[in-house]
Design a protein around this nucleic acid. Structure first.
Length: 269
DNA sequence: ACATATTCCTGGGGGC
DNA sequence: TGCCCCCAGGAATATG
């Protein structure tokens, strides 16, 4: 599923192709997950010129030259894929955009994704509702985000988008493994050294994943339909029962904060 | 102000 | 081969 590294991969690919281009047409194949609804969405964005494709948290942000924009949340199974002119729509496609000479398909098997056209003011407001970007802070600044509330478990704080933007279930588990911290630890029990180790682990794992164009644990593909290459470097996520790559102890899967949570009971304290 | 539960949705896998 | 059940989970919303 797309988290920060996957969304950033798609953003870079789309920005390279679509920057400066004008939306020529929007074909809505399945309505209901866009705002405004239906043809009003197509009408609102047709003719808009793309200043850049940006990212905030897990949102793809289409910024138009007039200041308005679109936020796209792919949620669990959404894809944005550049296709050929003669592309034939398939079952789960929601929209096909013609943007300059390019054709872009938004598809979503589980239909959780959202696409919102927003005025400049509404866009600014929406983007301000997230916590800071993990790759724009110094490790010590990230560490400070995990001091409070003291009773909260560290795993749920990690993927809370108002605490820190862009980390989801996969990278939460991977960051905690690298920091050698058990997911159920309360924030109040973390030492300053623990928090700093976690901050550095978050940045390291996100950067490595971006280099490999993300993780394709389930449905994720990039804007060219290619899978990410980070999956084989996952150390705990999806490795229930397999030996820890550090100590050989079988990886445990539990549920923390309603999320499947993977950790090494020996390495993570 | 916080934590926890529910809801949305479909494909894939296990059990039989 | 095919059914039934369960599971995956981001985040909005509701409830405690």
């Amino acid at each position: 599923m797309p988290e920060l590294p996957e969304v950033e991969t798609i953003r870079r690919q789309l920005d390279a192709k679509l920057k400066g281009q004008t939306i020529k047409s929007v074909q809505i194949l399945k309505t209901g997950r866009e705002t405004p609804h239906g043809q009003a969405f197509a009408k609102a964005i047709t003719g808009k010129r793309i200043k850049m494709i940006d990212r905030r948290a897990k949102l793809i942000v289409w910024k138009f030259t007039d200041g308005s924009g679109i936020t796209t949340h792919l949620k669990l199974t959404g894809t944005l894929i550049l296709v050929e002119k003669n592309y034939k729509p398939t079952k789960h496609d929601r929209m096909i955009f013609q943007i300059g000479p390019h054709h872009l398909v938004w598809a979503d098997v589980r239909q959780f994704g959202r696409m919102s056209y927003l005025s400049h003011e509404a866009l600014e407001k929406k983007l301000s509702e997230f916590g800071p970007e993990p790759l724009e802070l110094k490790p010590a600044q990230i560490a400070d985000l995990f001091k409070r509330p003291v009773t909260r478990n560290v795993k749920s704080a990690l993927f809370d988008q108002t605490t820190l933007a862009g980390v989801g279930n996969i990278y939460a588990d991977e960051s905690l493994f690298r920091a050698k911290i058990k997911p159920t630890r309360r924030l109040g029990s973390l030492t300053a050294e623990n928090r700093l180790r976690l901050a550095k682990a978050i940045q390291q794992v996100l950067k490595e994943a971006i280099k490999l164009r993300g993780t394709s644990a389930q449905d994720y593909v990039d804007a060219y339909g290619q899978e990410g290459k980070f999956e084989k470097f996952l150390r705990v996520y999806g490795r229930k029962g397999l030996p820890c790559k550090v100590c050989g102890t079988p990886i445990v899967r539990t549920v923390v904060a309603q999320r499947g949570t993977h950790y090494c009971p020996n390495c993570q304290k």
